[in-house]
């Protein structure tokens, strides 16, 4: 009896965790009574929403792909090269990863201002590509890389790029997927950078739209939230296996 009670309580707490998501979906079909009005308001009468949704998708995908292209070789170099000071480089990245965003924003802002990249898409993308998260997570996973395979591959080819693509990447599959999902979710969720680095509405992303959504016609907040949740939820549900195995810190 006690066992069943515990089991029931545990299931209820799991349900409690997804309750906010379920109720967001429920509320999007509600306007005094069951209705599609919020969805019509959003999809037909708020064209700016589409623009911002695609901006969000664009930023998140571009940043994720480019960061992987930059961070994987760097993590590989940090693990395999034999130079003095690589531990210090890794420590710097570890500390950078743990720094609050508000601290890194000001240096980013100053760097972007010098280069005239404020209020451009590149200004959002560049600082995020070089964020430390990807390097740290990939590095920790690469510590368990099968070195014999790399040695064997080096007899065949002299190109680091080929070895990275055909020997390292397959071994790292779970980690690369997990890192990508996290990066995508992180960029999809970004608020401070577009808010502070961008002035024009046409460049803003969905998070900023949600901030200002009370200013638009009708009851668009809930359906917008639902659409906001869809891309990351799909990614997570599809890749949840890799997500749990690919993170070693």
């Amino acid at each position: 009896m006690k066992k069943y009670l515990l089991k029931f309580l545990f299931l209820m707490s799991a349900l409690l965790f997804i309750l906010p998501i379920l109720s967001t979906i429920g509320m999007s079909f509600w306007q005094e009574k069951l209705s599609l009005q919020p969805w019509i308001d959003l999809l037909l009468d708020t064209p700016v929403f589409y623009k911002m949704f695609w901006n969000s998708m664009f930023y998140a995908s571009v940043i994720t792909i480019l960061e992987l292209c930059v961070a994987t070789p760097c993590a590989f170099g940090l693990v395999t090269s034999k130079i003095r000071g690589k531990k210090i480089i890794f420590m710097i990245y570890l500390i950078l990863m743990m720094m609050p965003l508000q601290v890194t924003l000001l240096p980013n802002y100053i760097g972007l201002r010098e280069m005239g990249l404020l209020n451009t898409r590149a200004g959002i993308i560049f600082p995020m590509i070089f964020s430390a998260f990807g390097i740290v997570v990939l590095h920790q996973y690469m510590l368990n890389l099968d070195e014999a395979q790399i040695e064997a591959a080096r007899l065949e080819t002299d190109s680091v790029i080929k070895i990275l693509m055909y020997v390292v990447a397959p071994q790292m599959k779970a980690c690369i997927i997990a890192t990508s999902v996290f990066l995508f979710a992180e960029c999809f969720n970004m608020l401070e950078q577009p808010m502070l680095f961008l002035k024009e509405e046409r460049l803003q992303n969905l998070t900023v739209f949600m901030m200002n959504a009370s200013g638009y016609e009708g009851n668009v907040l809930f359906p917008a939230s639902v659409i906001f949740l869809i891309p990351v939820s799909i990614l997570y549900l599809y890749f949840n296996d890799a997500l749990e195995k690919g993170i070693k810190l």
Partner: peptide
């Protein structure tokens, strides 16, 4: 799941 959910999508509820 909540870990990857964008905050802006959940703040309303």
């Amino acid at each position: 799941l909540p870990m990857v959910i964008p905050t802006a999508g959940i703040a309303v509820i």
